[in-house]
Design a protein around this nucleic acid. Structure first.
Lengths: 333, 333
DNA sequence: TCGATTGCCACAAACGTTTGTGTAAAGTGA
DNA sequence: TCACTTTACACAAACGTTTGTGGCAATCGA
């Protein structure tokens, strides 16, 4: 391996005329020079030499001894999805701050793939697990509960499990309230994957708030499918063909909204004059195309997810957190 | 840790009345039942019991002994970028097939951050490194060369280092040829970050091919900046304000192209009638908005990057690979 | 003044593998 | 039959940490 990594704790100790145990203790105890395990002078010498030769502990030896890997596993449906990529960045950032490293895997929202990826992470002896691909019914969780690694959910919640999510119900309400204020009557809803809390909660918040304003969204106006542009296009086309042109359309995901934007334009419909569109998440592209959308704190979801996991690993009992979204109005509605 | 992970090699051996060494050998040698280290009968018993109790080797003990981690590090500018996320998926997929696990880090195209992330990966004793954020001049590579971990470049090349990239020069030519065939005369170029081979090669291929058709792209028609939608908007605005409306615009990145699309629409310009637009990469959104673009084999770049690295780790001497792009014509040009 | 505490450090075992070497028994060829 | 190779295993050391325990000197409290 590299030169750096060839210098060992024992080597350091020998060089200093100390025992490896002493060197290990001062190097590990964050206290720095004021370690309680060696004289200030000795501590200084140790730190100095370690820094000079660029000593880096062998994590495998350490993990073998301590049975802790300082690795945390993350599984997401797909890293290509901007939302999950951003959440992962938040996780990774927070993990680094706490001395952990995050390892990520794609499950593609496919149970077998999920299972395989989780097992692989377990085999790597991760200290904790963050799941970003859990359906509302928690059906992918049973296998994980048997192993006793602590885990938390992010982005999608499931009753009974600790999670940090966007307050998607509120987000749906925000969108509903805004569109109701615009006087819409016939509205379409692109609901995403209906087994996921992101779909369920946003849909519920949206329709219920509209209902409070006397606006009813019948089932035929709601399309499920996926969260990406293609799914959005497809769903929009289907709705348009079956029930005509709406006043407004709410997509629970920006990409689906952008897909809708595309097919509406293709049919000569004008946004927002003919139909108003609201998306969800406020991805950068939303800004690019002037999409009115509900901003969800994706990065924060990741950060807090990691912190929640850390708490759980410490044995604290934790509570799920819901982070508030915010409506950002642009030109599409 | 979990129940599974509490069963050790020694435990297995004891249970079977064998020595750990024998068990280790049969378990490791892929030959399966026909191991040359034990009788077929013994091999079968070992495999069976291991499977039954769900034995998973402790990777830390193994890595400590072998000085190999079966970890490969990946650093990318930003995982939020669809292109890099896709390349990473390719890497991860291929890594898994070869028994490796990939760990990814964001450098944000920032030298200090890059340095820190690489060091962190090195400290984890990665067996190899894949860099997706190297500028054309290779300036971020000097520190890495001193350590002796094998590495390869992906997406962006740098002369003298092994890499797998899209044939970006060809990609530029494709775009140039197509637009030339459309009879354009005044063309804008959103060139991205001018220190990166993706910008340099695409730009060169594009302008040189246009030149062959007698079309000159003056420096004032070329804007550098970033690869995202915001940068695309900003650059387009700048060009529009300084030199008026062009016949066509080529962006070396789809997101920048989509940004351009937005500002053109905002100024009442029609695409493709007033200005034709070509992007690069063929991300899903390009399909959504009907963007004509150059499709780059992102996933393959990742896969082959990993394979190239593996070759290099085997001590073979390797050659850089350039994968061919392909023009996909939609409605924007 | 003496016993008790504290400060500073070393010893050695253990974590779970991998792998070089050793060694019985069984098989082989002449 | 005997010298031989091969088969089928076991022994034990090593990888680089961490951490419980122990020991000696200096300091402290009364």
């Amino acid at each position: 391996m590299s030169k750096r990594s060839s210098v060992t704790l024992k080597g350091l100790a020998q060089e200093l005329g100390l025992s490896p145990s002493t060197v290990s203790r001062v190097l590990n105890d964050a206290a720095g020079e004021e370690s309680r395990w060696a004289s200030p002078e000795t501590s200084r010498r140790i730190l100095a030499l370690a820094h000079e030769v660029g000593y880096a502990k062998n994590p495998y030896a350490a993990s073998l001894r301590t049975a802790r890997s300082r690795l945390i596993g993350v599984v997401v449906p797909r890293l290509q999805d901007y939302v999950l990529a951003t959440i992962y960045e938040g996780i990774d950032e927070a993990a680094a701050e706490h001395g952990y490293v995050a390892v990520v895997a794609n499950s593609l929202d496919n149970p077998e793939s999920h299972e395989a990826r989780v097992r692989k992470l377990m085999d790597r002896r991760i200290d904790g697990l963050i799941l970003g691909d859990t359906p509302f019914d928690g059906s992918t969780l049973t296998a994980i509960e048997r192993e006793d690694v602590p885990f938390v959910l992010v982005n999608r919640r499931s009753p009974g499990y600790p999670s940090v999510t966007c307050n998607d119900y509120l987000g749906g309400q925000l969108a509903g309230e805004y569109l109701a204020g615009l006087g819409v009557e016939k509205v379409f809803l692109l609901a995403g994957k209906n087994r996921m809390s992101t779909s369920i909660d946003r849909t519920a918040g949206f329709t219920e708030r509209l209902a409070e304003h006397g606006i009813h969204v019948p089932a035929e106006h709601i399309a499920t499918g996926g969260f990406d542009a293609e799914a959005g296009e497809e769903a929009t086309r289907r709705l348009l063909d079956s029930v005509g042109v709406p006043d407004a359309l709410f997509a629970v995901n920006d990409f689906a909204a952008i897909g809708a934007l595309g097919v509406l334009a293709g049919r000569g419909l004008s946004v927002p004059d003919d139909v108003k569109i609201v998306g969800y998440n406020d991805t950068p592209l939303a800004g690019g195309v002037g999409l009115t959308t509900v901003r969800s704190p994706m990065h924060q979801i990741g950060r807090q997810g990691l912190e929640l996991l850390l708490d759980r690993m410490d044995g604290k009992d934790v509570e799920s957190r819901q982070l508030d979204p915010e409506l950002v109005v642009r030109t599409s509605a």
